[in-house]
Amino acid sequence: MASRSLKLRLHVFSSKLHKWLALLIGAQVLLWMGTGALMSFLDLEEVRSEHIVSRAAQILPARAELPEWLERQDDVVSVATRALDGKVVTEVRRADGGVTLHDPHSGRLLSPISAATARAIARRAWIGPETSVNAARLVERDVGTEFRGPFPAWQITYDDRDATRVYIGASSGTILSARSDTWRLFDFIWGLHIMDWTQRDRINSWWLLLFGIAGTFIALSGFVLLANRLPRIRWLSWKRKSGS
């Protein structure tokens, strides 16, 4: 009898614990599913207002003071002087997104940068535990989900334990992205979360939408079932027992 009583108390305790945990966790699941379904309905272009607000860069005015050696000036959006591997260069950006590097005085074209320059940029950028540059490779197309341009770019691989890679624009000499095993793990988990196993950037897939809607109904039905199992206060019975 004592054993049965202990099992009964354990069953009741477990049931109550499960019920209240389900209530707390179920609320978050409901929010996750509901908001996930809502995000799947929304168009990212509209979310970012890209359909009504242009991000196109403005062309420099015709009277802007530009270097004499700059031949094509009708599509220039910016001219800047900056450092590249310890040297001064002039960066010219054009309306089509193209970037070129020049000698500030002669206008001599300095881009695309060489592998040696890309390696030197990567070594200067490294601030982690001491390591070395393991390899440099020119890439001209997508590297899985890790890097999607702009191209061409130098892929520089460090010899660290996290297999870190940086991608340096061959035209601009700037670091475009840095990737490591930690990033790759996050990218994989993100793909599972949004149910996009290939591109990792589509939150409007039918898979996510259907599962989000289904999950919302599951959570809502769970709350209905939970409400039916909650202890009910019987006011009439209580009044009769209290004699009121």
Rank of each mutant, 00 (worst) to 15 (best):
G34A: 14
T35A: 09
R9T: 07
L208T: 00
R148W: 06
I168V: 14
D181V: 09
N228W: 14
R9V: 09
R234P: 00
V92N: 00
F151D: 05
P129V: 08
V224D: 06
L208I: 05
R179I: 06
M1I: 08
R48P: 00
I175K: 02
A170Y: 02
L38R: 02
P152L: 11
T164D: 01
G128S: 08
G97S: 12
T174Q: 11
L17M: 15
D187E: 08
L31V: 13
E140I: 09
A95M: 09
T174L: 07
R48S: 08
D96E: 11
T174P: 00
L70E: 03
W190V: 02
V76N: 05
L84I: 09
D196H: 03
R123V: 10
E140M: 12
F211Y: 09
E46D: 11
V133G: 01
R137H: 11
E140P: 01
D162I: 06
E140N: 15
Y167K: 02
S244M: 07
L176V: 14
T216F: 04
Q28S: 08
R234A: 10
E91T: 06
L101T: 02
R123A: 14
W69S: 06
T100R: 05
L17D: 07
R232T: 12
A22N: 06
I213S: 02
A120Q: 03
I175W: 01
L10H: 09
F211N: 04
S221A: 15
L226D: 04
E91V: 04
A37S: 13
V139D: 01
G215D: 08
I59P: 00
A2N: 10
R63F: 07
S114P: 01
T81W: 09
R165Q: 11
I203V: 15
L210Y: 11
P150C: 10
R137Q: 13
F186W: 10
P112W: 10
L220F: 06
D96K: 08
H51E: 13
G169L: 02
H105F: 14
K87F: 03
V88F: 03
F217P: 00
V76F: 05
V79S: 08
W206E: 13
G86I: 02
D162W: 03
